[in-house]
């Protein structure tokens, strides 16, 4: 059952939204979502890498021999990751500092490799780009949402702007590591409740 282009895009936003539905790419999800801004920044970086790598992999899918495909994927992905790394250093240095080693670690993010292997290697260029874009946007949404929840409760701010006023005593637990896990777990629970597939 072939999906339309729109369906390919939309599936990444809800049905297969990473990291909730596909439990992949948890590390950056947990690590960089102390604030909305970080979550968004990470998301954008992943979108870029995902779209570019999906495009290139699908372009080259007839040339790449299947035995060395993983190696080829890794080279392609790593290349774009470095591009992101350099560009981010040049134009968004503070973000680069907060995201730290998680930018280079996009290279081992299961989502990117997973999409290359599971989708781009088997589908046409346009589809692959749409798929990558959808997945990337989905990932960004998840990260932003998690970042929003953690920032609002953990620091009482949203994009750095105070939400509850000065009398609010932030629930610091949320921006600490344990809070990240618990929060993600509970959001996953909400997702399961919402989408009784």
């Amino acid at each position: 059952m072939a999906k339309t282009i729109t369906q390919e895009f939309v599936k990444g936003l809800w049905d297969e939204i990473p990291p909730f539905r596909l439990v992949l790419g948890l590390c950056p999800t947990l690590a960089v979502t102390k604030s909305v801004e970080n979550g968004l920044g990470m998301g954008v970086a992943v979108v870029f890498v995902l779209v570019c790598s999906n495009m290139l992999v699908s372009l080259l899918r007839n040339i790449i021999p299947s035995k060395v495909r993983i190696a080829c994927f890794i080279i392609i992905i790593a290349t774009f990751v470095i591009v992101v790394e350099l560009v981010m250093q040049a134009y968004a240095y503070p973000l680069f500092l907060t995201l730290g080693i998680f930018i280079p670690l996009i290279v081992v993010n299961c989502i990117v490799l997973g999409r290359a292997e599971a989708f781009a290697y088997k589908n046409g260029v346009v589809r692959s780009i749409v798929d990558g874009f959808g997945m990337g946007i989905g990932f960004t949404i998840s990260l932003t949402a998690l970042g929003a929840v953690r920032e609002v409760f953990g620091s009482g701010t949203f994009f750095g702007i105070s939400v509850f006023g000065p009398s609010f005593q932030p629930f610091t637990f949320m921006i600490e590591a344990p809070g990240a896990f618990v929060c993600l777990g509970l959001m996953l629970c909400m997702m399961n409740l919402a989408g009784n597939k």
Binding site: I64, P65, I75, A78, T79, V83, L86, Q89, A90
Partner: peptide, 29 residues
């Protein structure tokens, strides 16, 4: 051949990006 070409492409692209952003990065740092 594929691996070599890919690596070459990757190296070239990266060198180009690197060249374009070096000054800026240094300043940012």
């Amino acid at each position: 051949v594929v691996l070599t070409v890919l690596s070459a492409f990757s190296g070239g692209l990266l060198a180009a990006v690197r060249g374009g952003t070096m000054e800026k990065i240094e300043y940012q740092q």
